[in-house]
């Protein structure tokens, strides 16, 4: 059993956030424990991305508190937030790669710019190679993001997110707009990263399939493929699902509870 009794890595306490007069997050409270995998689902516009950006301190809630690694980030200023963010890896919706920088410079960006960890250049290069090898794109180092396909850009985004070996990883709609084969590759990478480093993982998605994969499969380092979790071993990693609807949490629980749910909004996700 990993992490069940440990401190929450991320905790929201009655968070409200408004865009102009419309609430984007309404009284959102939850906590994610160390080593946990959390799948956050919801239709587009339900506040999933806003929630991730609030967790990163990119958006400030209008009321309520957000704790990351036990620290209340709603009270921190931008430069104090940099230290917290250095421990979080994030993949933005479209990858969020800097299009004026090469793939190598993109992946090196957090390593070079985070104040907390100044590193010698050879070390940076080694880390970048390692991260790109992880997503199997080490041959694209000198390319610009515009020369890559959508799926490859997403993979470079993952490489950049994991380059600094963060303790918490946030993925914003990693499979949105991708074909099923590429989507599978991306989810495989996320599971591989989760199972090799045991980092706390938060995946925001509108596809239940991604959540089901994350909950039911594990990465086998010997074969290099995903394999179904055997009965009994599912307690080894805790995967919980959460569903947002118009800024509110309408479901939080295990996969079996989700599948047993009768709520028509939740059922839609499973049937799709």
């Amino acid at each position: 059993m990993v992490g069940h009794s440990s401190e929450p890595v991320l905790r929201f306490e009655h968070v409200w956030l408004y865009f102009e007069d419309k609430p984007a997050l309404e009284d959102v409270s939850f906590e994610i424990l160390e080593g946990e995998t959390r799948i956050i689902m919801g239709a587009s516009g339900s506040g999933k991305t806003v929630l991730l950006k609030t967790a990163l301190g990119l958006l400030k809630p209008d009321s309520g508190r957000v704790f990351v690694f036990g620290q209340d980030i709603t009270r921190l200023n931008e430069s104090e937030l940099f230290d917290i963010r250095a421990r979080i890896g994030v993949l933005f919706q479209e990858g969020g790669l800097f299009d004026s920088l090469t793939v190598e410079e993109n992946v090196a960006y957090p390593l070079v710019n985070q104040k907390a960890a100044p590193r010698p250049l050879e070390d940076v290069r080694e880390r970048v190679e390692e991260a790109l090898r992880f997503v199997e794109l080490e041959q694209t180092m000198d390319k610009l993001p515009s020369e890559l396909s959508g799926g490859m850009r997403r993979r470079v985004g993952i490489a950049r997110a994991i380059a600094s070996k963060p303790a918490l990883l946030l993925y914003d709609s990693p499979t949105a707009g991708l074909d099923p084969i590429t989507a599978y590759t991306i989810v495989t990478l996320i599971i591989k990263e989760r199972d090799t480093r045991k980092a706390t993982t938060v995946v925001v998605t509108h596809r239940y399939q991604d959540g089901a994969w994350m909950a039911n499969f594990r990465y086998n380092p010997e074969s290099g493929c995903l394999e179904p979790l055997r009965n009994g071993s599912s307690t080894e990693r805790r995967t919980r699902l959460m569903v947002l609807r118009e800024g509110r949490i309408v479901f939080e629980g295990e996969r079996c509870e989700f599948e047993a749910a009768r709520d028509p909004y939740l059922v839609k996700f499973i049937k799709r």
């Binding site: 950006k53 990163l56 990119l58 931008e78 430069s79 940099f82 963010r85 250095a86 979080i88 994030v90 933005f92 919706q93 479209e94 969020g96 790669l97 800097f98 299009d99 960006y109 957090p110 710019n113 985070q114 104040k115 907390a116 950049r160």
Partner: peptide, 17 residues
Amino acid sequence: SMKVTEQIDAMRALGTD
């Protein structure tokens, strides 16, 4: 363009103002 493609957010998330 950087703002709408989340590059500005990425910059903040990756440790630069």
